[in-house]
């Protein structure tokens, strides 16, 4: 019940933040209406990072405490993170087309970094599918999750440098809004969107975790059933 209320609140917040971004905030001087894509785009990118951080921490938690609930958290966060990463890439491309004239701008560090993130974590999810033992799966996934997470900052820096070691940040890069000179209405709208998306993330996390636990319970029941069958057969002999 509480989760359902959280879900409704998150939905309302996302709708409200979207309305503000679409109708209240004035169009950008240089980019016009296209700039509005930036709000959900930045919010998605933030949630992708948050998710992957949670995946890494929960993975370390599993290695340390060997509690399968932590693995369920790691799995849920990775899946939701991949979803938001894909959404961020899609938003970036939609924004790039009118502003840069191309869907894919190699000079934009955000876009290229995010694409690598997607590759890293799709690998994580594929690896999970290859193991039918819950503990092995949790261990392998935890290790890969940790390595992927420590790789993220290096990816970020290298791509940032790669674009041009001696170049100033591209004009019109989406995070321009976050600098202190930006008008309050842009900042407020972005923060609103971040808050709304984070609520939605929390709701999705809880639901995905519940689903993961339900799957684990079914798997566990099947395992226990096989053991009990083996015992009953033996006892009957």
């Amino acid at each position: 019940m509480k989760t359902r209320i959280l879900g409704l609140v998150a939905l309302a917040a996302v709708i409200a933040a979207t309305a503000v971004a679409l109708f209240v905030v004035p169009p950008d001087q240089n980019q016009g209406d296209a700039q509005r894509i930036m709000y959900p785009h930045v919010a998605s990118a933030w949630l992708a990072y948050l998710s992957f951080g949670v995946t890494a921490l929960a993975g370390i938690g599993w290695l340390w405490k060997r509690d399968l609930r932590l693995d369920a958290v790691a799995h849920s966060a990775a899946e939701i993170g991949v979803m938001f990463t894909a959404f961020a890439i899609w938003g970036g491309m939609m924004w790039g087309r009118p502003v840069w004239g191309v869907f894919w701008q190699w000079e934009d560090p955000r876009l290229t970094t995010t694409a690598l993130l997607l590759a890293l974590y799709v690998g994580y999810l594929l690896l999970r599918r290859l193991s039918d033992d819950p503990e092995r799966r949790a261990t392998r996934a935890a290790i890969v999750g940790v390595i992927a997470a420590v790789d993220i900052p290096i990816v970020h820096f290298s791509v940032e440098w790669w674009r041009g070691l001696h170049q100033t940040a591209t004009i019109g890069s989406p995070d321009r809004v976050l600098n202190p000179a930006a008008p309050m209405v842009f900042v407020g709208s972005l923060l609103g969107m971040l808050g709304a998306f984070t609520l939605a993330w929390l709701y999705l996390m809880i639901r995905r975790y519940q689903l993961a636990r339900a799957e684990a319970a079914r798997e566990e029941a099947r395992r226990m059933d096989r053991i009990m069958t083996a015992r009953t057969v033996e006892a009957a002999r």
Binding site: V144, A148, D151, V155, S158
Partner: peptide, 26 residues
Amino acid sequence: ITVRLRAREVMLPLLMLPVLAPLLLG
């Protein structure tokens, strides 16, 4: 990790290459 997997030929590059991206750049 992958030496014990059934699909190791596919999984090794798939997991390794994105991680190596910054090394490749550098």
